[in-house]
Simulated scan of single mutants.
Amino acid sequence: MPLEIGDLVTRYSYNEDILFRITRIHNDGTYELKGEDLRLVADAPHEDLNKIDDDERAKREKEQQKKEEQCYHLFRQDFRLLREKSDYEMSPNYSTTSPLYFEMRGRVLHLDGDPAYLQKCKLMYERLGIPVYGAHMKETEMQNQVASLLEMVQPEILVITGHDAYSEAQGSQRDKKAYRHSYAFAQAVREARKVVPQLDDLIIFAGACQSYFETLIRAGANFASSPARVNIHALDPVYIAAKVSMTPFMNRVQLYEILRNTLSGDDGLGGIDTKGVLRRGMPLRDETEM
């Protein structure tokens, strides 16, 4: 069966659990693969790959959309609870149907090594009402561009993500050489911390599938992947950034709650105590624009 760049495939050796797209064919006949919904890159020989037909593709896409919608509705439920609490704190009469205050949600700078994933994430930010500036670049270039982008965008939240993978054949989980892009992510975090050192002045998420969680946290990230070296969904960084963006700055982001609504859970994502960045103001006027 001939295979070409752009084909959707699964791997027999992993029970066809993940849907990949072929991104490159190496001279030795191996294929470079990119997860269609997971932030994972891999290599595989021709005999390990099964090309997916349109019916199977539609079935898998429907399953993924169902999972994403479930997470979205959980997030919206959390947001409604936050809004009710804000209404109570900011309104003299809690029974009022119209809030008397305005909100300034945290702005996100999202650096992504994959343009398709970046577009998917930007659509979700828009759906959630989170202001975002997105930039696509290679993972290895992020450390060179993050400082100037921080100066230009002035965000409260920075997301550094793309593709990653851990290879046991390349070393132990404590060996940075065993990871495809974890070291590049960590370097980008360090460069960002040179610009904004304080953990609560710039909230950073860093990592992708199977990333070196401990190194990313030590580098200065507030949230990172992947504690159990598992795969994470393309939208997981968005949900974490959105939760921080809509949590008032006087409150701590509850780690359990923030992980509960992700598709990967605490095997794929973790973090440290962090404040929210939402700011509220009064009075509310029709012409108020923030």
Rank of each mutant, 00 (worst) to 15 (best):
P283M: 00
M246Q: 15
S245L: 02
L149S: 01
P227N: 11
Q145W: 12
E32M: 06
L109N: 02
I157S: 02
T97K: 15
S167L: 14
L149H: 08
Q119W: 04
G113W: 06
P283C: 01
A169N: 14
I22G: 10
Y125V: 05
D236F: 05
E103V: 08
L269I: 11
Q77G: 10
H136N: 13
H110Y: 07
A186N: 06
E168H: 12
E139F: 08
G35I: 00
D286R: 03
P155M: 00
H26I: 00
V230Y: 05
R127M: 09
M137V: 09
A221C: 09
D53V: 01
E63H: 04
A42M: 03
K51G: 09
L111V: 05
A184L: 01
S91K: 10
Q154Y: 01
V132I: 10
T161W: 03
D273M: 11
V238L: 07
R260E: 15
A188W: 04
I217S: 10
E4G: 06
H73L: 14
E69A: 12
H26D: 15
G6S: 08
L259E: 12
A169C: 05
H73R: 15
L109S: 05
C121E: 07
E103W: 10
L118Y: 02
Q70C: 03
V159S: 05
Q254L: 12
V189M: 06
I25C: 04
G129N: 03
N144S: 14
G265P: 06
E141V: 00
D200E: 05
A206Y: 03
G207P: 02
L199S: 12
A192C: 03
G6A: 06
I25T: 08
D114Q: 00
A234F: 02
P131W: 02
L128G: 08
K85A: 13
L74G: 06
I204E: 09
T215E: 15
R57S: 13
L38F: 07
R83Q: 14
T247A: 09
M290H: 09
Y94P: 15
A165N: 15
V230S: 11
I160N: 05
P45I: 02
L235M: 08
C71R: 11
K243S: 14
L235T: 01
P45S: 04
G276F: 01
S225N: 04
V153K: 03
T262F: 10
S245H: 12
G113R: 06
F20K: 11
S264A: 13
V153D: 01
E289M: 07
V253F: 10
E69H: 13
G281Q: 02
I217F: 08
K85L: 08
D164W: 10
P131V: 02
L284R: 12
G265W: 09
S98W: 11
I204R: 01
T23N: 08
D54Q: 15
Y179A: 09
V230H: 06
H181F: 15
R218M: 12
F205H: 13
V230Q: 09
E68M: 07
